[in-house]
Every structure is written in structure tokens, then in C-alpha cells.
Simulated assay, not measured.
Amino acid sequence: MAQTREINPILKQVLELGPTLAFFVLYIRIKDDVFAFGGTEYSGFIVAAVLFVPVLLIAMGILWALTGQLSRMQVFTAFMVIFFGGLTAWFNDERFFKMKTTIVYGFLALILLIGLLRGRSWLEYVMADMMPMEHEGWMILTKRLVMAFVTLAVVNEFVWRTMSTEAWVKIETFGFPLALMGFLMWQFMQLQSYVIEDEKDEGAS
């Protein structure tokens, strides 16, 4: 098994978030353009969505080369982007790429829900080393995160079906990530009573 290597956290963030920001910038620049390939016309959105695929794969390749690992979530996201990006290009229909977000959030909710039904928090399994917390706290957080993912999936369906493509791109790029980050920060503050304090810190206090 390859050993995990630490890299500069700023570089890590650039590689993880850069492709999405690149998609946003590219879309804004070519959103009103029409491109013809093989006798078929494609909107700027579809071209940006298709180009997002290699940009994401290159960033993931660099991240893997530098760290020696990729998370299951990163691999799953890449698969979804490739699959729905391919459908978007093949059918020349931007709806496939927009539905990707709904399916990703729905899948995450389903996976966590399956764990809950089995009396387990798979969040605890993945994140316990980063944030030691009592099992009850992880169960509460997992239940709330299931509801959050379901909410994001429903909101995405509402946004892409009722709003403009530009509005969806902005919400997809900034709105959903910021909402999820804010939700998690709020939950970690709410669940502080379940956090397991480090024994050294307790002794020093």
C-alpha cells in the first residue's frame, strides 16, 4: 500500500477546488457562445462541462502523485463527472450535468442512512481520528447530515428546473459548498459537549 504523503495545504486546496473554479470562470467567459463540432452546435455551458472533465482528472492525477492517495469520495465524484459529462456531450443536453449534483447528494444521504439503519455512523469511521467525539455525537451529526444532503438534492432539483443556467452555475460553484461548510461548522459548535478532550490538555488545565 502506498504511503500517504503530506503536501502544502494551500496547494491541496487549489488541486481540490481549482477545477470547479476553472469550470465557473470558463463558463462565464463562453456562456453566450455557440461552438460547432462535427456539424453539431454546442452551447458554452456544454463545452465548459466537457472541458471540466480533463481539468478535474489532471488535478486529481497531480494530487495522487503528490500524496499517494485519493479518497473514495474523490474517485466517486470523478466517476460521476465523467459519466454525466459524457452523457451531456453525447445527447447535447445540459440537464444531465445539472442532475449530477442531485445524484451525488442523494447518494451520500443514502450511504449514511444505510449506516444509521445498521446502528453505525460511517462518518465516525472516516473522521474519528481528525475529531475525537463520543459515538452518540457522531450519530446525531450523521442524522443531521443525511437531512442536509437530502435538502441540497431537493434544492438542486428546484434550482436547475426553475432558474437560469447561469444561476445554477453560481449556486453550484459557491452556494452549495458554502451552505454545507456553514452547516458543518454550526453542527460542530452544537456538538461540542460530545467532543472528547485530549488527556494532555485536560492535565494541563
Rank of each mutant, 00 (worst) to 15 (best):
L26M: 15
F37I: 14
G119D: 12
S164N: 08
L17C: 08
E134G: 14
E124R: 12
L110F: 15
S71C: 00
A49H: 03
G18A: 06
G119H: 12
L141F: 15
F23M: 09
V47K: 05
F84R: 06
L123D: 03
G38S: 05
V146S: 07
Y105F: 13
N156C: 10
M60R: 11
S121V: 00
G115P: 04
R5W: 08
Q3I: 14
K200T: 07
R120V: 01
D93A: 10
A167M: 11
S205F: 13
A59K: 04
F174S: 00
M60K: 12
V169N: 05
A148R: 00
M73A: 14
L21E: 01
T151R: 10
T67Y: 07
R144Y: 07
T40M: 12
V81R: 05
V34S: 06
A59M: 02
T142V: 03
E124A: 12
R161E: 09
F158E: 04
R120L: 09
A22T: 09
T173L: 05
Q69C: 07
F158I: 15
D129P: 05
E172P: 02
T20Y: 07
L191Y: 07
K12S: 11
V154P: 08
V104G: 06
T40Q: 09
F183E: 06
D129Q: 15
E199P: 09
G175A: 10
W160Y: 15
N92D: 07
E16W: 00
K143G: 12
V126K: 11
F107A: 14
T4E: 15
L108K: 02
A153Q: 03
P132L: 10
L178R: 08
Q192R: 15
V25G: 00
Y125A: 14
V126C: 02
L11S: 11
D201I: 10
M131K: 12
G175T: 07
W122V: 11
A59F: 08
E41S: 15
V47E: 04
D32R: 09
F158H: 09
E16N: 14
G85T: 07
P177M: 08
F83V: 10
L15E: 01
M181W: 12
R118F: 04
E157V: 12
M189N: 15
F97R: 01
E166G: 13
L113A: 15
M73E: 03
L117F: 13
G18S: 06
M133H: 06
L70I: 00
E16D: 13
G182A: 14
M147E: 05
T40N: 08
F37L: 15
G175H: 05
A167D: 06
R72A: 14
I46T: 07
D198Y: 09
M80Y: 02
W122C: 00
A78G: 14
T165P: 08
